[in-house]
Amino acid sequence: MSTAAEIADHKSSVRERVWTELRKVAVADSRFHFDFGEFIADFEGGEEAVHRLIDHSFYRDAELIFITPDNCLDRLRLRALQDGKVVLMTTYSIKRGFWLLDPAKIAPDHYLYASTLDGMERVGQHLTLAEIQATLPNVDYMVTGTGAINHEGVRFGKGHGFFDSEWGMLYQIGRISVATPCAAVVHDCQVLVEKLTPDVYDTVVDIIFTPTRTIEVHNPHKPTCGIIWDRLDQHMFDTIPPLQELKAMGL
């Protein structure tokens, strides 16, 4: 059995190998350039990948979608607003919490601005976890970007665990379940054929959308542990108010 250090080393080597290939097709970030440890990049063919996602029944049937604040998903957040879907998202690193973008409450000429990280905090509505629990219906669909992923839907992100924390928080307040579909949008070079072993809190996706493929995952692992407090990085807890709120809620 591999030790925790060996697993961490393997994840790191996978990320570095994928990021070398991703740099050839990625769109540089205005703040982080090609530092893929700090952001999830947009990429050549990103529009085609999103078109595959919006043609799928998971998207068509969803009314409330959680979409991560990844560069490759800006156009999806815009399209969702144009299609009349309500978008729940977080800020970068979750540090300023959850925000709701309701197209019925946003002027259509502000949809593009609202879909960006800068705009969503000025146009959208900030919600605490208690407000999400009390005022919103269940989330119909969870969509994320990632650093690397295999055909079994096991994700390796930037290494910070933000999406798994978002899943854990929404799961603990009862707004998602193991039946909630989850998708990843990535470039083909980010899809691996090798075996990857998820941890108990890792959220495995139901479906992967690339510019050229739609990959469906059979029986993906969805964590039911919520936030495992004794395994949570102390810096994340100290800097992410929603995690502090969840702990205070005693859930």
Rank of each mutant, 00 (worst) to 15 (best):
G168I: 01
S13T: 13
I149L: 09
D83K: 09
L192C: 06
D61C: 11
V139H: 03
F156N: 15
D199F: 04
A62V: 00
P241H: 04
P137D: 07
T210L: 03
T203P: 06
V14Q: 04
A179C: 07
A41W: 10
T180A: 08
D230E: 15
T210I: 10
V143S: 05
K105V: 05
E38Q: 14
D35C: 03
E21Q: 12
V185F: 00
D202K: 11
A114W: 01
L117C: 06
A183W: 02
A4S: 15
T224F: 06
D164W: 00
E21Y: 10
M236L: 15
M249C: 06
L112S: 14
P211H: 07
A104K: 11
F237M: 12
I215C: 09
W99A: 02
A8I: 00
E48T: 12
D202T: 10
P211L: 06
F156R: 15
D164R: 00
V87A: 11
H221V: 04
R79W: 15
M249E: 07
N138H: 15
D206C: 04
L243T: 07
S13V: 08
G45P: 07
L192E: 12
A4I: 13
K11A: 06
P223L: 03
I240G: 01
F39R: 05
G145K: 04
H187I: 08
K85H: 10
V154P: 05
E63D: 14
I67V: 14
E245W: 05
V154Y: 03
D42M: 02
G45L: 09
S57F: 14
A80M: 02
W99P: 06
D55K: 13
F163L: 11
R23W: 02
H56K: 04
A148G: 08
D230G: 07
M142W: 07
M142S: 09
D35Q: 09
R96D: 13
A28H: 13
V154K: 05
D206V: 03
A184Q: 09
G250N: 07
I94W: 10
V205M: 01
F58T: 01
